[in-house]
Simulated scan of single mutants.
Amino acid sequence: MKLKLILLLICCQSILAEASQIDTVMVNSASMNKSIANIVIVPDNYSRHQESFPVLYLLHGAGGDHTNWLSKVPAIQEYADQYDMIIVCPDGDVTSWYFDSPIDKKMRYETYLSKELVESIDNTYNTIAEKSGRAITGLSMGGHGAFYLAFRHQEVWGAAGSMSGGVDIRPFPKNWDLSKRLGDYAIYKENWENNTVINMVHLLKGDNLKLIFDCGVDDFFFDANKRLHTKLLERNIPHDYTERPGGHSWDYWANSIKYQLLFFNDYFAY
């Protein structure tokens, strides 16, 4: 009995030793003069190998924070091990929408994500520090943010995804603090037109940026995603697009992330 207990303890210690590592990394944002928290999941192979690892940036939705993905979908820790990739979950404020606000100079999350955070992660971890080793995706506000950032910074990210993304924010002028970021729609219409993802398709050229997005048919963002899909088809922009049953829920996103990780893993392996 004692021998069995010792063997069990050794086995448990071995499993823990091979488990992925979870770090909370504080990154200073010079553009916003504050320190921002980020969850970084490092795969189990990281400590045993010297090669560089690809990085997936995974964005939360409105009302969330950097802990959402790990707390709601703890399986992402296993996915980091399975695909040998680093997963970074940044804090994007409650409703930053991940852009540099044209009316609130204290909200500069485009600069933070595309420059300050990426540089910090590459300096801290053993990463593939080029677009071939970086992807970005997110849910809802984070789906908008992932496409927004990747469309505008194709030199930073080589692949991008969106899950139930708010890819056209114009139909929602009174929601999710958007007017605090862009101004009242009736007065600052140009801000809204210039910062909605569906109006940024002109920035894409061929398959320079690998794209995947999906949305549940019962989601209030479904129409916007379908219109973005149609627009990409019209412009001959290659992309993976999926409609499936479901609404705006963690059950949907926990399922969606599994398919997107396969897509990103294929991109990193190419």
Rank of each mutant, 00 (worst) to 15 (best):
E116C: 00
E116L: 00
L117R: 00
L117S: 02
V118I: 15
V118A: 10
E119S: 12
S120N: 14
S120F: 12
I121Y: 08
I121G: 07
I121T: 11
N123C: 14
N123T: 14
N123F: 12
T124C: 13
T124P: 08
Y125R: 02
Y125G: 03
N126P: 03
N126Q: 10
N126W: 01
T127V: 10
I128Y: 06
I128G: 07
I128A: 06
A129C: 07
A129H: 04
A129S: 11
E130D: 13
E130T: 11
K131I: 07
S132I: 05
G133W: 04
G133F: 04
R134S: 04
A135Q: 04
I136D: 01
I136P: 01
I136N: 02
I136Q: 02
I136T: 05
G138A: 08
G138S: 09
L139F: 13
S140I: 13
S140L: 13
S140N: 10
S140R: 11
M141A: 06
M141Q: 06
M141P: 06
G142M: 05
G142P: 02
G143E: 08
H144L: 14
H144N: 11
G145F: 01
G145P: 04
G145W: 01
F147Q: 10
F147V: 11
F147R: 06
F147T: 09
Y148W: 02
Y148Q: 00
Y148C: 02
L149T: 07
L149S: 04
L149E: 02
A150F: 07
A150N: 06
A150C: 11
F151I: 07
F151Q: 02
F151N: 06
F151V: 08
R152Q: 11
H153V: 05
H153R: 10
H153T: 06
Q154L: 01
E155Q: 14
V156P: 01
V156Y: 04
V156K: 01
V156D: 03
V156C: 03
V156N: 01
W157R: 03
G158T: 07
G158A: 07
A159S: 10
A160V: 11
G161W: 00
G161H: 00
S162L: 00
S162W: 00
M163N: 09
S164Y: 03
G165L: 11
G166K: 08
V167T: 12
D168H: 09
D168Y: 08
I169L: 09
I169M: 08
R170N: 10
P171G: 10
P171W: 08
P171Q: 07
F172L: 11
F172S: 07
P173T: 08
K174M: 15
K174D: 15
K174C: 15
N175T: 15
N175D: 15
N175Y: 15
W176P: 10
W176R: 13
D177T: 14
L178E: 08
S179L: 12
K180N: 13
K180M: 09
R181N: 13
R181P: 08
R181W: 09
L182H: 02
L182A: 01
G183P: 12
G183R: 06
D184L: 13
D184S: 15
D184F: 13
D184N: 15
